[in-house]
Amino acid sequence: MKESTVSVIVDDGTSQTLRLSGVLSEWLFASGFWSEVNEICGTMFDQYEEDEASPDIVLVIQQEIDKKASGLRMSTEPKFEFVRGWAADWTPLKVSANTEDVLEELKIFRNFLDAGISTTSNAIFSL
């Protein structure tokens, strides 16, 4: 599974980068997260691409992270499964994820963006 990275330039001019696990990265695409962001913002965040987001788009991404986290918190299941792609014979490639682990990583992702959005710099998403 492909991991993603998010980078921001902080106030002192240095770059900070967060690596998202393959599970979170794949789930964000499989769950329609990036499609929702694209629809709201008129952007084209796509898998295996690098895209830049202005602070106003980062704010929308944070709001969408909050929605995904809220949905996961409502689950009573300790694990969930999703389809991350398809094999050559069209067999679904399924991933099992621990709900609490994904919630924790969403929290880290959101907090990272929150720290970066206080600057006027854009964020770079390598998805």
Rank of each mutant, 00 (worst) to 15 (best):
T43I: 03
Y48W: 11
G71V: 04
F45M: 13
F125P: 02
D12Q: 04
V37A: 09
W86P: 01
K79D: 12
V10F: 15
K68N: 01
E100S: 13
N98R: 12
E104L: 13
T43H: 05
V10S: 10
N122R: 12
S35F: 04
F80W: 06
A30T: 09
G13R: 13
T91D: 07
I117Y: 07
A97V: 04
E77P: 00
I40F: 00
D66S: 13
V6P: 01
K68Y: 11
M74I: 10
E105G: 10
I61E: 09
E26Q: 07
S54N: 03
F125Q: 01
G32A: 10
I61D: 04
E50T: 15
D56T: 04
K79E: 14
S7T: 14
G13F: 11
L113K: 10
V102A: 12
D11M: 04
D11F: 10
T91C: 01
L127R: 11
E26K: 04
L28C: 05
K79F: 09
V6M: 12
F33Y: 11
A87T: 09
T43M: 04
L28Q: 05
L106P: 14
E3V: 06
L72E: 05
K2Q: 11
S75W: 03
E36L: 01
T119L: 10
S31D: 15
R84C: 05
A97Y: 02
L103A: 03
P92E: 08
Y48T: 06
P78L: 11
A97L: 05
T99A: 04
F112N: 08
Q47S: 12
D12E: 13
